[in-house]
Design a binder for these strands. Structure first.
Length: 420
DNA sequence: TCTGGGGTCCTAGGACCC
DNA sequence: TCTGGGGTCCTAGGACCC
């Protein structure tokens, strides 16, 4: 038996935990730069505010209905997520943390328990320990557990828990769910399937498997089997090493001069290097991209990307920043208004397995020691307390974050940093 | 004026090997 | 007139997830 535990309106729920006056009110959380709506309370959903809607399009609606608006506070949400996951892990060792607000649990090792009772117990404990409301769906495959979770969320009468534990319930559940709401069926496939009169999850399970495989690859076939009750996707117990790491941002205001973009790229590159070190990985490939604002049809558009193969795989900020700046200079063109830029590293391997080069003239031990010391200091005194000069003083490219909530759960250093 | 960020997997096709 | 068979690796593009 698989269970999917999913936090309700997660970011909004995090804000509510520390600000109970928000209860019963429409609340939304915005993406970086206060761009789009990424989390909504039930009251906000009832007002018709859509997921992903640009904030500027709903200004009137927000004002008229007194909607509480927050910039996203990922430090807070990350910390709350950890609390939820730690509590979930006390119920079974078989847990896969699937995203910031979701986890799959496998309950097969627990003998002689009533799954439904157990799920309610989990739900109540999470609420009591963390203040976060969750929904739980149970079924014999992960994809069906997702369906069960969907039903638990949509129907208040189930009190946040639903189980598919019979053939009748499986068919009933699949008939009630739209094809677009199935895990693994996105926008393109649901549109495509609707052309073949496939409207519900049930319709999808009735298609010939060969046809599904031909049109939707083995991935689609797996989804179909899982919906039929045949498990194809097991729990992932260990977090696999990342194959690519990316840091990118949109700029609050468009930027055209090279100096400012250099500072941004330096910041993104050193952030990628830091993430690599945290994973104990090194990267051999580096990509830098820049682009103008696609939404501004009135302005001239330009987008470019440059990939560089590093001579020796590395996670040194010094090396990665300098190659990133080199790549940037090769694609930067003056005269455009740039809106977004980023750095991606890939070709990743463990930092214990570096293929060195005969002609390498870098003292890698020295770099490693320096990076270790830098990380230690920054972990203690706050991000970028010590940084490469190329990053500048970081004032020129501030994100728009007008409605950020306090860092309720983390170290005082973070709070001080924000006030500064 | 204002439109997020960070990932994964699969397939087809081309280049290459013996 | 006729021109093999069996592989690997890499990349771009397209789908998906939160």
């Amino acid at each position: 038996m698989y269970a999917l535990a999913d936090c309700n309106n997660f970011y909004v729920s995090c804000e509510k935990v520390f600000n109970p006056s928000l209860n019963g009110k429409p609340v939304i959380v915005l993406s970086n730069n206060d761009g789009c709506v990424v989390s909504r309370s039930n009251e906000a959903k009832a007002l018709g505010i859509k997921m992903g809607e640009p904030a500027f399009k709903i200004v009137d609606l927000v004002e008229k209905n007194n909607v509480a608006v927050f910039s996203s506070n990922y430090v807070l949400y990350g910390d709350m997520s950890q609390r939820v996951m730690n509590t979930l892990a006390t119920f079974t060792p078989d847990i896969e943390i699937y995203s910031i607000d979701e986890a799959f649990l496998k309950l097969h090792t627990l003998k002689n328990i009533n799954f439904l009772d157990y799920a309610y117990k989990i739900r109540n404990t999470i609420k009591r320990y963390t203040g976060i409301p969750i929904s739980i769906g149970l079924a014999m495959t992960k994809t069906l557990a997702k369906v069960a979770n969907h039903i638990a969320k949509k129907n208040p009468k189930y009190n946040g828990v639903y189980i598919i534990d019979s053939e009748e319930k499986r068919i009933e559940a699949l008939k009630s769910i739209e094809i677009a709401d199935i895990w693994g069926i996105g926008r393109q496939y649901s549109r495509f399937l609707e052309r073949y009169k496939v409207k519900t999850g049930y319709d999808f399970t009735m298609l010939p498997p060969n046809w599904v495989k031909q049109k939707m690859t083995v991935v689609g076939l797996r989804t179909q089997k899982e919906l039929s009750g045949i498990p194809c996707i097991d729990l992932e117990y260990e977090v696999p090493r990342k194959k690519a790491i990316c840091t990118s941002r949109s700029f609050a205001n468009m930027v055209s001069d090279l100096n400012t973009i250099e500072e941004a790229i330096s910041y993104f590159a050193s952030s990628c290097a830091y993430k690599l070190r945290k994973e104990e990985s090194v990267a051999q490939l580096l990509m830098v991209f820049i682009r103008t604002n696609f939404f501004r049809k009135d302005l001239e558009q330009y987008a470019s990307v440059r990939t560089i193969t590093l001579p020796v795989p590395t996670n040194s900020s010094i090396e990665i920043v300098s190659y990133a700046l080199y790549a940037l200079k090769s694609i930067y063109k003056p005269g455009y208004e740039y809106k977004k830029a980023g750095v991606i590293v890939s070709g990743i391997s463990p930092d214990t397995q570096v293929q060195t080069s005969l002609f390498d003239d870098i003292d890698r031990n020295k770099h490693n020691n320096l990076m270790k010391t830098m990380d230690m200091i920054n972990n203690k005194y706050g991000k970028n307390t010590i940084r490469l000069a190329a990053l500048g003083c970081g004032r020129r490219l501030k994100m728009r974050q007008e409605k950020i909530s306090p860092f309720y759960t983390t170290r005082w250093e973070d709070i001080i940093t924000v006030k500064v």
